[in-house]
Amino acid sequence: MMSSARSFQVPEYLNARTPAEYRGIQRDHVRLMTLDTVTGECTHNFFNRLDSYLVAGDLLVLNNSRTIPAVLKGKRGRQIIEIRLSRKLSDKEWEALIVGGVVTVGEKIDLQGGLTATITGLGAEAPLIVLSFSKSGLDLLEIFYRYGEPLHYEYIETPWPIEMYQTVYASVPGSVEMPSAGRAFTWRLLNRLKEKGVNIAYLQLHAGLSYYGNDRWPHPNKHLEEFSISAETAGLINKTKKNNGRVIAVGTTVVRALETAVNAEGKIEPQKGLTNLYIQKGYPLKAVNGLITGLHEPEASHLDLLSAFINKGLLMKAYKEALADGYLWHEFGDMNLILPMSERT
């Protein structure tokens, strides 16, 4: 993790605890900081003016993974157990985090709806474990939606409903954390972009846990996430690149998926699979030209990925400007567009 990422702190009052809708504004009225990757120029606007930075022939690639209620409460004897789902392994198996207490392989946890979960092994990295549920497929997903709660971290004090953790275009259930870079989009804004000639494509990357608690974060090279890129989306991206258009990823999840799927010739290949791709300073981006993302905390590996787009000194200068200007952090916060503005035609 880049050392300069730790050179700033986000004060408590800049942690966005409340969705935009509950702050009296529309989703797309959050603020937007733009960064020119060529000149380093930093400007400020609102997200509903995104169309003023994009041109006909640009392509936005969105992650339409839908957030599931990933927090389950159960009992192990008399002890209350909190399960945080992380990654689906099969129709009945998930990697998960058990919050509090010591876990033993073979133990069973009783959950609501007549569901039980058995600890069958260790996950890809500590402290994750593997759970095998007594139900599978749609029956299991229905239990999650009926009894589960959306995952939220300490800076969120209100139990917001699952709808607040969805993008408007989310359609394929599987993420345990909202792919939050797309939260600020509204259908009105998307339609306005299309009318301007900006194209839209979708893929899925099911986001896993980004934080394990107690100052523990996933190891960048062990953080496996499932993704799927259709032939239609691959074709749109390859056509855009052939026509010298800009491919703009909406979220670091989209960057990881596309950079995993790009071949040696720079073309995207349709595929499904897992990615543990870790992108940092010096990584040769072959699939994407720009990025729409939120504002990331100092410890997040997302900042390493951002430094593949723009000089980290310029990035940290802009972040300090955002702090001084009162930008809001995290999934309900403000947005950042990182793009070579000089390439606009």
Results as ranks from 00 to 15, higher is better:
T116G: 02
T252M: 05
G40Q: 06
P19Q: 08
I338R: 03
A322H: 03
E21P: 05
P159M: 08
P11H: 10
K194L: 12
Y278R: 06
R183H: 06
M164A: 14
A170M: 05
T275E: 06
E154M: 05
W217G: 02
P218A: 03
D110S: 15
E125M: 15
P19K: 06
P179G: 04
G24I: 13
I310C: 12
F332P: 03
T67G: 00
W94C: 06
L89K: 07
F227N: 03
F46I: 15
S180D: 04
E154H: 13
D91P: 11
R76P: 02
S342V: 15
A231Q: 13
L50P: 02
A264V: 13
L285T: 11
C42M: 10
K317G: 05
Q280N: 13
D36P: 14
I338W: 04
G245W: 02
K312A: 07
E259T: 13
N221K: 14
M33T: 07
F8W: 12
S175N: 10
G148N: 03
E343H: 14
S210I: 10
N243F: 07
L50I: 11
Y327R: 07
L339E: 01
Y53Q: 10
S228E: 12
E41W: 04
L14C: 08
G294Y: 00
K196E: 04
I143Q: 12
I237E: 03
L54Q: 03
G121V: 14
E142P: 00
R76K: 15
M335P: 02
V30A: 06
S301W: 01
T275N: 06
E321R: 14
S65V: 04
G137H: 10
S52T: 15
K108C: 07
P127V: 12
K242C: 03
W217Q: 13
A70G: 14
L306I: 14
A300F: 04
M2V: 13
I81T: 09
S175M: 08
Q79M: 12
T118L: 08
